[in-house]
Amino acid sequence: MAQFYPGTSKVAENRRKFSNPEIELEKLREISDEDVVQILGHRAPGEEYPSVHPPLEELDEPDDPIRSLVEPLDGAKAGDRVRYIQFTDSMYFAPVHPFVRSRSYLHRFRGADAGTLSGRQIIETRERDLEKYAKELLETEWFDPARTGIRGKTVHGHALRLDEDGMMFDMLRRQMFDKSTGLVSSVKNQIGDELDEPVVLGEPLEESVLKEKTTIYRKDGEAYRDDKDAVEVLQRIHVLRSMGGYNPE
């Protein structure tokens, strides 16, 4: 069995849960395909997928044994463009954080390229595959409407205090909390262009639920130092890497 992450804490268990592709993540909300396309902002809903090369079937490619081993993605077969979705995860108990995202993306999403930065995380793949992955990322436990931001640009805010409604700071206010309904809606697409109709993302998760679901070690949640197993493995890796195979005896 693959060893995804060490540790006995709930956080470690959650990290393993996201990384293990055999575990199906809980679906928390319903977002239509059309709304996902709108939030992504790469093409208008209903528009044909623009392509960068003719379909693979029409291309006269040289013989290569790898081609028979690896099945191309649907998007690659059709010659789609490579497009992206990027998330910002608040340090205040967001369900996932960039490094867990990257590890899990590589386990779960075929043919996708993940890029990790301290406060944001991008995934790039062919457009029609991206839409499929984005839908999964938005509908399941990966996403919380208040603590996760869909931000193609102007990503600043992951390390700031939350605002009075419990939303992560967003300079462009893409996700808005409606006090009367208690629901969060996306009013702009990921790069900040106004949407014709807001897309309802649902209720923010309760603090206690987030603390159960989070993959972030925090002193006011579960502290990393208290997870003895995880620390032990980390220290072992640190020593092995520092020694680099050097054995003075």
């Binding site: 700031l160 205090r161 939350l162 605002d163 009075e164 419990g166 700071f169």
Partner: peptide, 10 residues
């Protein structure tokens, strides 16, 4: 030092 970022009204 408030524990949340304040709105304009507050």
């Amino acid at each position: 030092f408030p524990h949340r970022l304040l709105s304009a009204d507050t």
